[in-house]
Each structure stands twice: as C-alpha cells, then as structure tokens.
C-alpha cells in the first residue's frame, strides 16, 4: 500500500522533473518568460491520449506528442519571440486561454469537458512504469546538461543576460531563441504524454493556471538556470504538496489553500535565497 503510493508519487515526480527542466531552459537559461508552458504539456497529453485511444501504438504517440508540441511551439516562437520580456509573457499567457477554449469546444476531437478516459497504460505494472518514466527523465536531464554546457547553451545564456551584446558578437539571437523554445516545448510534450499514460485520463484541466503556478513555483524555488535546482524544487514542493493532504480543509478550498502555501514558501525562500536554492540568475 505504502509502496504503491510511493511508486505513483515517484512517477509523477518524473514528469514534473521533465516539465520544470524544460521550463528552466526557456525561462532560466534563455530569459524567455513562457507563461504558456502548460499548453505544450497539454498538447502532448492530448496527442498521446487521442492517438492511443484510436489504436496507434504508444511509442508512436509518445514521440509524436513531443514532436507536435515542438512544431507548434516553434511556429508560435517564430512569430512571437521578437517581443520583449513581459510582452512575450503576455502573448504566451494568451495561449493558455486559446488552448482551454479549443479543448473544451472541439468536441469531436477532445470530447470537450468530458475529457478522454481510458488512455491505455504504456506498461501495466506501476513499478516498471515508474522506472520507464525516470529513464525518460534521466535522458532529459542528460540532454539538457550537455546542451546547457555546450557552446549553444552558452549562447542562450548570453542572450538572457544581454541580447544586444550577443547580436553584436555575431550571434543570430532570433534563431537561438526559437531553438530554445523548440527544445523546451518538445520536452513539455513528452512530459504530457507520460502524464496521460500515468493517470489514464486527459481533460481541459491540464491547461489550468493553478497547475502552472505549482510548476513555476518549483522552478523558482529551485532556482533559475540550475538543473540541480529544478530537480530539488520538484522534490521539495511535491513533498509539501503531499503533506498538505493531511491538512483538514474543505475540498472547495483546498486548491486555494495550496496556492497560498506555495506562494508563502516561495516568498520565504526568496527572502533568504534571492536566486532560489541553487539559482544562478536573479528571479
């Protein structure tokens, strides 16, 4: 029983890890405040759910979930990435509302608010699915570690610190910013697919801002531009989230109480550690 609980929790930590690391690539390493990150997570979840419930093998669906999220991410980035800081953030926030509206209203594809039940397991045994999820998360960590320490990764960080300076050193900053979003949204889509096959169900709530607040809290608590920080943020805040199951609050208030607790924790961390626990950049 306790082991089951642990296995399920650890599985969800795997896709949270991928999701937060992917967000860190865009926000922490490149300075692109993508508030629509969950849109690409949702696209991954829906892609996997729709394809596998129509009989497509999971491995196709799994890869396509990442690719479709990345293709849409690249297209949107190609149009919006020239916007400065907060304007880029506003546009990407707008994507959340568009995605929610589409998932609620394109009923022939998404079944609207009913959601898509019966998303098949990739691996029936929960323990092995946890291993599989962490293998994927491990590959993601390895890839992002290599990337952020490569010359390309350094260019992304240079753009974050001063885009003009990167440009006058001969770097095509537009290309690099689109590339960052393309990779970030690919992993968000992969995380979405893992999520869909984990809970066997997808509905428009994947796009909820409440979910995003949890994800970005993990990122900021762990610290921007630190892979280690993201992993610590995921584990730390998830433990807090699980502990809150024992706080007796009426079910209608639990969501709000959680958000308040996350924000208070963030404020406390940022007072003592202004860059987050392992952060390399000011929040």
């Amino acid at each position: 029983m306790i082991l089951d609980y642990f296995v399920i929790l650890m599985t969800s930590l795997a896709f949270y890890t991928i999701l937060v690391l992917a967000l860190n690539l865009a926000v922490g390493f490149t300075g692109l405040i993508n508030l629509g990150h969950m849109v690409f997570f949702g696209i991954g979840a829906y892609t996997s759910a729709i394809l596998t419930t129509h009989g497509i093998p999971w491995y196709f669906a799994f890869i396509l979930a990442g690719l479709l999220a990345s293709v849409l991410g690249t297209l949107i980035a190609a149009i919006t990435v020239r916007l400065k800081g907060e304007y880029f953030a506003m546009v990407t926030l707008g994507l959340v509302f568009i995605a929610t509206a589409i998932s609620r209203n394109w009923i022939s594809l998404t079944r609207g608010a009913l959601g898509i039940p019966g998303v098949p397991d990739i691996i029936r045994d929960n323990f092995y699915y946890m291993i599989f999820s962490w293998a994927v998360a491990g590959l993601c960590i390895l890839f992002l570690y290599k990337l952020t320490n490569s010359e390309t990764g350094k260019v992304l960080q240079a753009i974050r610190d001063d885009e003009t300076a990167a440009a006058i050193l001969g770097k095509n900053t537009y290309f690099y910013k689109v590339l960052s979003i393309a990779i970030s949204t690919f992993f968000a889509g992969i995380a979405g697919s893992l999520f869909a096959h984990h809970i066997n169900f997808v509905d428009p709530s994947v796009f909820d801002l409440e979910f995003f607040i949890f994800v970005i809290s993990m990122l900021i608590a762990g610290g921007l531009a630190s892979l280690k920080g993201s992993i610590v943020g995921v584990f730390g805040l998830s433990i807090v989230s699980e502990a809150m199951r024992y706080i007796v609050v009426s079910p209608s208030l639990i969501g709000a109480v959680r958000d308040i607790v996350y924000v208070v924790i963030l404020i406390i961390i940022l007072i003592y550690k202004p860059k987050g626990i392992f952060g390399k950049v000011d929040v």
């Binding site: 300076a165 050193l169 390399k280």
Partner: peptide
Amino acid sequence: KVFKNMSIKDNLLIANN
C-alpha cells in the same frame, strides 16, 4: 554590456571559442 551572470571565460567564449 557584459554577460553579468556568466564567467569571464564564458563571456569570451561567446566572442570566439
């Protein structure tokens, strides 16, 4: 306009590796 969060080495690396 230095890259303030980056090391001296990485600042130079962006210019030429």
